[in-house]
Every structure is written in structure tokens, then in C-alpha cells.
């Protein structure tokens, strides 16, 4: 089964590449005092907020909303 971290990396990768997608997820996990593999559904708000903050200045808002919707859809 894919972890939440892996799923988010897969969603972000087409936009920001593997390395940056990985960094984005690990930074969120670190801010919550966890490792990337320990991220769970309950960490979604923090993850979404981090994705919006980091991608906000570089990606179209509609696209960010689409990414967040994809992440939410992935954990359902």
C-alpha cells in the first residue's frame, strides 16, 4: 500500500519534479515532528497548507486547488 507521503510526492512530481516534491513532503513532516513515512490522514490540513504556501508564488491558483483536490481524493 502506498503511504500518504508517497502519494503526495506522486501528485506533486509532474509539477515540481521528484526532488522538490520529496522536499515539500519531508518539510511538512519535519514541521510536525514526524518523518515522511509517519504522515497520516490527520496531518492533511498541515500538508495542504504547506503545499499551498510553497506552490502559491510559482503555480496558478486553479492548479494548486486541483493538486489539493487530488491529494484529498487520494486519501478517501
Amino acid at each position: 500500500m502506498t503511504s500518504l507521503a508517497e502519494m503526495v510526492v506522486v501528485i506533486l512530481e509532474p509539477y515540481v519534479g521528484q526532488m522538490v516534491a520529496d522536499t515539500c513532503v519531508r518539510a511538512t513532516a519535519l514541521s510536525l515532528g514526524k518523518s515522511a513515512d509517519e504522515l497520516q490522514g490527520a496531518d492533511m490540513p498541515a500538508l495542504e497548507s504547506n503545499v499551498k504556501r510553497l506552490l502559491g508564488p510559482i503555480a496558478p491558483m486553479q492548479t494548486i486547488e486541483h493538486i489539493v483536490a487530488e491529494i484529498e481524493g487520494g486519501i478517501r
Binding site: 512530481e13 509532474p14 509539477y15 515540481v16 519534479g17 521528484q18 526532488m19
Partner: peptide
């Protein structure tokens, strides 16, 4: 260039 194949680049 740090985005690799990322579309935003």
C-alpha cells in the same frame, strides 16, 4: 533546473 522534469520549469 532544480525542478528536473517538473512542468513549472
Amino acid at each position: 533546473s532544480q525542478l528536473g522534469r517538473g512542468a513549472l520549469a
